[in-house]
Design a protein around this nucleic acid. Structure first.
Length: 569
RNA sequence: GUCCCCGUAGCUCAAUGGAUAGAGCGCUAGCCUUCUAAGCUAGACAUCUUGGUUCGAUUCCAAGCGGGGAUACCA
């Protein structure tokens, strides 16, 4: 293969490498029209080598001649690209940097029209119909209601929320779901922990075993427990009383979680799905019957197993334990049945802590059993390690050593917390130093980006004063449009937003949002320093337009990240 | 043992197989009589090791070293 690279820092895009956005496609189309011999492969377009030859033997010119594409010099090639593409999109010029690179420069007039388009499209700028209105269920956080949300849950909460925002922009219909494990042994243990604490407070000599939850929130629940008729403690009574208070305690935990997510950090869910409801509606039993019908169940050592190995899992999995209790995996299968057969979602994105990575195999096996293979994307999100005084602190709900999401947000604010977590690739192992986060929250890049927005608002305020003072006078317009490098740099970033949205909708790489926001802010700050919008009595209205476009893009990015756009700082 | 993730600047992180590897913080030197200096400009500092694939590797493959996680009839 011969690879011709059409790209360049100044020329906006690497076109040979990736044809994912509209501009790329237009350029590629032009190239195809020029040279029908060129064909597309997955990463580049090119032609086959003559046998026995290597690319290194040739310059672009020689290679193209060999391929029979053109019989001209590289400069002439660049020229023909310019002419052809100048008609469809605004290409000003192109140049050849041999061997193998052709740079393409966009016309400033075309760039200016893009600015106007951004302003007129407003929040719709960046929106596309890539997703064809497909309904995607996104499950994220879904932390057990046996303790408050931790730092680590924050990572999933913010990432999942931002991903849904992006999917929405890309034309999908995301459905945010929090699956509540409100049944099973964990809930019993929580209730028991509270009860034991309660009795301890009543002066009853009661031990507190290791399997119980140690956290301060258990104390809090115990303090607020109203339990007049069950003062006596005994092994038999414990279970009876526990079951009496279970529902109340669970409700309290869940409402606490909801409060933090919705009120505190602004992550709203479309559905808080109760695991218990899967049993109540009979769906779990139906699921079991279905699996039995498919002859995928067998009994061994008193337990009921599912033959997941037939569908690529490492080993078969227990669905019902020897003691007769079902395992979460069972309701998880029922949940997928519900999502794909009853709700008819076309896809699910399941954001899962990396400590659950072993769960993937059986989940995908379950999807295959349901005949829905390929519809479940599991996104593993690496754990957050908490450092205190340079030492790692193992976060554990059971032992009560953790930092809650609420604490963090109280310390640094929602914007800083969101931005901080969104900066990291899901695959990155984050070390989180709370002391440092408190101390350094002022250094958070979110303020750098927000500051750009505040500066824009300041200009706009000034501008409205200016126009009020000059009522009736004709606004001065610059006839000659010669863009400063800072202006071009800014525009080039702004028009990348739709491409970025599409990219993230495909790759789920939400952390690119923060990189992009920072880049736009940098370009704006440079522009701000170098180019004046209001200069004495002169207003440059083209720059006003550019500033408005920048504000719009920043607001759109902020909205996707769930970060506020302050008008003053 | 097996499986998953990570290893890039002093620190925290970026970089669809492409040109001179980028930001922020920290460090050095400059810039406010003009739209917010939470800013701008310049400078110093980096791809864990060894092989392989490729015209080209931070990126893909293999082995090694180092760190984290998982290996339940817990979730």
């Amino acid at each position: 293969m011969v690879y011709f690279l059409f790209n360049g820092e100044d020329s906006l895009y690497t076109i040979a490498m990736n044809f994912k956005d509209q501009l790329h496609r237009k350029i590629l189309k032009t190239v195809y029209a020029l040279w029908p011999q060129v064909r597309e492969s997955s990463f580049s377009f090119g032609v086959d080598y003559p046998p026995g030859h290597k690319f290194g033997d040739y310059t672009t010119n020689a290679a193209m001649k060999l391929a029979g594409i053109v019989h001209q010099s590289p400069m002439t090639i660049a020229e023909s690209i310019t002419v052809a593409m100048g008609k469809t999109i605004g290409v000003r010029e192109s140049s050849v940097v041999a061997p193998g690179f052709i740079n393409i420069f966009l016309d400033e007039k075309w760039l200016s029209t893009q600015v106007e388009e951004i302003v007129s499209k407003k929040t719709l700028f960046g929106r596309s119909d890539l997703g064809e209105k497909k309904r995607i269920v996104v499950e994220f956080v879904s932390a057990n209601p046996t303790g408050p949300l931790t730092l680590g849950n924050g990572r999933a909460a913010f990432g999942g929320d931002a991903l849904c925002n992006i999917l929405q922009l890309a034309g999908y219909r995301p459905y945010r779901e929090y699956y509540i494990n409100d049944i099973g042994n964990q809930v019993n243990i929580l209730a028991e922990s509270v009860l034991r604490r309660y009795w301890q407070h009543q002066g009853i000599n009661m031990e507190f075993p290791d399997y119980c939850y140690q956290g301060a929130y258990v104390e809090e629940l115990a303090k607020n427990l109203y339990l007049p008729n069950y003062k006596l403690a005994s092994a038999q009574k414990l279970e009876v009383v526990r079951d009496k208070i279970k529902g109340r305690i669970l409700a309290k935990m869940i409402s606490g979680i909801k409060k933090v997510l919705v009120k505190k950090v602004g992550v709203r869910y479309d559905k808080w799905f109760s695991e218990k409801s899967l049993y109540a509606s009979g769906l779990v039993d139906k699921m079991l019957a279905l699996l039995k019908e498919k002859k995928l169940l067998y009994k061994s050592e008193g337990a009921i197993w599912l033959k997941t190995t037939q569908y690529g899992d490492d080993k078969d999995r227990v669905l019902i334990k020897a003691d007769g209790d079902p395992v979460y995996f069972l309701s998880d299968i029922a949940l997928r049945y519900h999502r794909f057969f009853k709700r008819k979602f076309s896809k699910e994105i399941f954001i899962l802590g990396a400590d659950h990575h072993g769960y993937q195999g059986r989940m995908q096996a379950a999807m295959s059993i349901l005949g829905q293979a390929g519809k479940l994307d599991i996104l593993l999100i690496q754990l957050v390690r908490l450092l205190k005084h340079g030492q790692e602190v193992r976060m554990s709900k059971r032992s009560g050593t953790f930092v809650t999401l609420e604490e963090l947000v109280d310390e640094v604010g929602v914007d800083a917390a969101r931005y901080f977590f969104l900066m990291y690739d899901f695959n990155t192992h984050m070390d989180f130093n709370l002391d440092l986060a408190k101390k350094k929250s002022k250094d958070n890049p979110v303020y750098y980006v927000q500051y750009a927005h505040a500066r824009i608002c300041s200009i706009m305020r000034k501008l409205s004063q200016f126009t009020a003072a000059n009522k009736g006078k004709k606004p001065h317009r610059n006839a000659a449009k010669v863009l400063e490098p800072a202006e071009i740099g800014l525009i080039k970033q702004l028009i990348k937003w739709p491409e970025l949205v599409a990219d993230i909708a495909r790759s789920y790489q939400v952390h690119k949002l923060t990189s992009y926001a920072t880049t736009v802010a940098t370009e704006f700050h440079t522009f701000y320093t170098q180019c004046r919008v209001i200069n004495g009595k002169e207003v440059n209205y083209d720059r006003v337009m550019l500033v408005r476009a920048t504000r719009q893009v920043l607001q759109n990015v902020f909205a996707a990240m769930g970060v506020s756009a302050p008008e003053k700082m």
